[in-house]
Design a protein around this nucleic acid. Sequence first.
DNA 1: TTCCAGGGGTAGA
DNA 2: TCTACCCATGGA
Length: 298
Amino acid sequence: MSASSFVITTPPQFDFRQTVPSHGWIMLAPFQWGAASGWLRYVYESAAGDVLRLSMTAVSGGLQVHTPDVPEIDSALRAELTTAVKRMLNMAWDLRPFYAAMRKHNGYAWLKTERQGRLLISPSLWEDLAKVLLTTNCSWANTVAWSGRLCQLGAPHPTSKGTSAFPTPQHIAQMEFAELADALRAGYRNAYLHELAKTIANGEVDLSAWLELDSDAFCAAVKSLKGFGDYAARTLACMYGHFDQIAVDSSVRAMYATLHKHGEKADAKEITTHYRRFGEWSGLVLWLDNKRYWSARD
DNA sequence: TTCCAGGGGTAGA
DNA sequence: TCTACCCATGGA
């Protein structure tokens, strides 16, 4: 292996190819997913401010991380990238209690067989907040386009034209609103995103503290932001390991209507009641049911 | 033109 | 807690 690559040892029940396509994040810049070859690419801005292209692939017993922009990775950068990659793939989650709990429910043996349950997130909560905001009340095509335009506002890669890291909240905060709105063109969400970036940049919101919150407190914190309601808060909660939060959106409603109501519409209350039977895992079960339903239709 | 898509804010009851 | 109405964007 070259000095521009290293291997991260992965947990026994970790499955890279199941984790990466756990939701649509793989389609949003600066992620890229090579499904056929099994590589995940991400444009990462290091703590030192360098824009690096990362490429991750599964190898025996671990995950290989390749950085073509760095001929010799030193120990500090290796440690930083290891932390970021482990976080993106939620490697710290222990899903054995989940699989054990699901044994008493009929029809869910596939969860353990397929090693389902781990979700892809971004290296920063800020990036996930921004992207969830860009999923609200719009088509997925809009989310993809807006995320792409937002990413173009980030630090550019030194040599690869058109490649850039996701912008920092500080960068978005210092932009004039008109400049941001003109670049992003995401309607009323422009103002919510600008406000979010400013509250993070000026220290009013400390996202690192949010990572220590319990499930309900995490959701309350997200919902305190303008533009973030129940769907957004609960979606983010699941991504950050609070699996008791049940996020209902239009895709979930469609899935539930087809599987449980012969096509008749169901409201969020009814869907939430149905999934409550899975207790502390209810939100994750819904997430994986929805993923499985839509994957089968593709 | 109207509707809708991985909703949310606000006002009023 | 529930409902009505409004919100900007882009594709069908």
